[in-house]
């Protein structure tokens, strides 16, 4: 199986373990990932909140490249990239006016449909839970995971057409397939503040604090994410949150691909897990 791959900027820097673990897991599943040629940044939040057309043309440019390469589908692990790629595709497909503008701006048109998947969709629906189950070598049976979806994977649901925007289940289903228990909790789709981390750090610290306290209350021993922004706000800033509020949260935050990798018995090091801020040892020991 070959799929197009759009890593996006974060996966080469702050979210490098997402990239490493995604590639390691796909290799184990014999899935070949072909990087979108000469891909550019999706513009993320600054793009679409500065100029609407910039917020569409940047991601759309990547879809044009993917279609030229003959890719029928691409996986975009970063939730922000996934969201922007889907939004651009949706706008062009639903508005002849936007479609015309995109071809005026970029000077090229997309020749074929390119389907866009996030990682949850990719492993649950494209690869499939049955196959995933048959590959599990080391069930994550002792784990109580809080599956944290955030905003970008589920909203706006009209555009993404993926999971329920208030109570999504896809990540829970993957985690259960890996043998873990998932907790029922109230912050599944609460916002972590996303790209406000730098300009409005105080907001992010408070939003992340709420997420931790609801995960702890629900009895979780770790948080699972599929978004680089969520990961850095929860993992890199956990110490800052404890210092700010006098709390003592000690919750490792995993990318879903890292946990799939552990269940496949890939070593933490080969999954890039030495790049975490919050120590992952306790949880890894629990898995055995």
């Amino acid at each position: 199986m070959t799929y197009g791959y759009y890593p996006g900027c974060s996966l080469h820097a702050t979210a490098k373990e997402f990239n490493i673990s995604m590639r390691a897991v796909c290799k184990a599943f014999n899935i070949e990932l072909t990087e979108v040629e000469d891909w550019n940044c999706c513009g993320a939040t600054p793009g679409h909140t500065t100029k609407e057309e910039l917020g569409l043309a940047l991601p759309y440019s990547n879809l044009i490249n993917a279609s030229k390469q003959g890719l029928d589908n691409i996986v975009a692990p970063c939730a922000a990239c996934y969201n922007r790629l889907k939004s651009a595709d949706y706008s062009v497909n639903n508005s002849p006016l936007v479609k015309e503008r995109m071809s005026q701006i970029i000077g090229e048109e997309k020749q074929r449909d390119v389907k866009i998947f996030n990682v949850l969709e990719f492993f649950r629906d494209v690869y499939g839970l049955d196959k995933l189950k048959s590959e599990v070598k080391k069930p994550l049976s002792n784990l109580n995971a809080a599956c944290y979806y955030g905003c970008l994977l589920v909203r706006p649901s009209k555009v993404l057409q993926f999971d329920d925007e208030e109570d999504p289940q896809s990540m829970d289903q993957i985690m259960q397939t890996l043998g873990a228990k998932t907790v029922d909790w109230s912050s599944k789709t609460e916002c972590c503040g996303g790209s406000h981390a730098i300009p409005e750090t105080e907001i992010v610290l408070e939003l992340a604090r709420r997420i931790f306290s609801s995960a702890v209350k629900a009895g979780a021993d770790c948080i699972v994410v599929a978004c680089p922004l969520c990961h850095s706000n929860l993992d890199m800033r956990q110490k800052q949150i404890n210092a700010r509020y006098g709390t003592n949260f000690d919750l490792p935050v995993f990318y879903i691909t890292e946990l799939i990798g552990l269940a496949l018995n890939i070593s933490p090091k080969d999954l890039g897990m030495n790049a975490h801020f919050v120590d992952t040892k306790i949880v890894i020991e629990k898995i055995g």
């Binding site: 609407e52 057309e53 043309a57 706008s91 508005s95 936007v98 503008r101 701006i105 970029i106 000077g107």
Partner: peptide, 17 residues
């Protein structure tokens, strides 16, 4: 060129019905 076009030609608002 692609990058330059995207930044030069993109407008603040997309056309809407």
């Amino acid at each position: 060129k692609r990058l330059k076009d995207i930044f030069d030609k993109s407008d603040y608002f997309e056309p809407k019905e």
